[in-house]
Design a protein around this nucleic acid. Sequence first.
RNA 1: GGAGGGGUGGCUGAGCGGUUGAAAGCAUCGGUCUUGAAAACCGACAAUGGGGCAACUCAUUCGUGGGUUCGAAUCCCACCCCCUCCGCCA
Length: 417
Amino acid sequence: MLDLKEIRKNPDFFNKKLSDRNSKVDLKVLLELDKKNRELLTEKEKLEQEKKTISQKKDKSLFERSKKISIEIDEFSKKQTKTKNQIDTILNSLPNLAHDDVPVGSNETHNKEIKKVGEVPKFTFKTLSHSELGKKIGQMDFDMATKTSGARFVFLKDKLALLERAISNFMLDVHTKEFGYQEISPPLIVTDETMYGTGQLPKFESDQFEIKLEDDQSRKFLIPTAEVILTNMVRDSFLKKEDLPLRLVASTACFRKEAGSYGKDTKGMIRQHQFYKVELVSLVDPKNSLEELERMTNCAQEILKRLNLPYRVVLLCTGDMGFSAEKTYDLEVWIPSENKYREISSCSSCGQFQSRRMKAKFKNNNKDSVFLGTLNGSGLAIGRTLIAIMENYQQKDGSIIIPEVLRPYMDNKDRIS
RNA sequence: GGAGGGGUGGCUGAGCGGUUGAAAGCAUCGGUCUUGAAAACCGACAAUGGGGCAACUCAUUCGUGGGUUCGAAUCCCACCCCCUCCGCCA
């Protein structure tokens, strides 16, 4: 959520920054509602003051007046609540502003490649896609998943199942032991408030899996990413300055409807309803947000480097960033079967956008309470890492060499076949 | 599933119809003392929103939402959450 006070002070600036983000909103409407809201508040408060005075005087002759005031207050209050709700609806629909060093552009063609790392492999034989490889070795089964669960699911078996687990453990070990992230094993089901806190609701409800629980009036959802629950751990709370930066990592399943992507990436396990991901979250003094973003991106890159996977770093433009982000780096890994780089991690700084929604603060040195800076990034997506390893490490006979760093996690074997 | 107890400020915890925004303690900050630190003592210390764009001032907030009352943290109703005992399942 953007800061209404700041919008009030500088509407032109916000108008420009929002249009950079493809957000067509007329802030005039918002500001008029804001003005109306404050007028109603003032009226209401005047009446409340009078009522308070009467009750303190305990003068019976004024009691009738007080009753009338209560009714008037009620009327103002209803109007004011309605106006406030309209304001919130608009405010909730506005994306975060992009940081100044984010390139302005309407779509992914305006993203800026920062660097390429590693050599794209040159094969001397006809390569297979991960799904072809998986079928060939009999350890990846989409048909079985279709039978049991429907489209966009997969079964992994034997060594591929172990590989998935190995990737997860390897990543967790690096992030916890070397980069100082605290490991968390969180719930995978969250309340609607939690989904609201990180911005999945109300705007992106159609991509979320909702769960029905008996006798429970609140709505519950499967997490689309661990970002949701890790970040919301600090919702409605005050952290101490010495708690920061708070760095968290979790390896979880993620669930997405992928509504609106029908016909996109339908073959293989690039885009599934359920996938696993190692997620990094940092909660920081907002002054350090961008610095932390660089650090986090480096942590994620380190995984790719150690797996010896060719990748590139892309700075997303204003039009391609997620709703809550102020600046985002995507890491894209080389996928031979598609002959292109595909997203395997997305690291974002959200500034104070999420913490303002979540009411997550800390006291700084001047003992002012300040909204936290929040960041999240994949470190990395496990399914796509598995794909990348299969395809980049494939051999002529269809076997797959296991990257050295993973072998300790795979019974010290050096290949899958 | 049965029976009880409770949710109050950053934390612990009093208050149970009227200057209570809320005692006390802890934590934090400032000061005295000290070569420095600790201890001791003195003082400050809620959040959010409105107006003044500063001193300041007004309103709201005691799990959430309703209700009773001139007036509610305090009484009533519903819901959420936590704890203890019994039963049940591991």
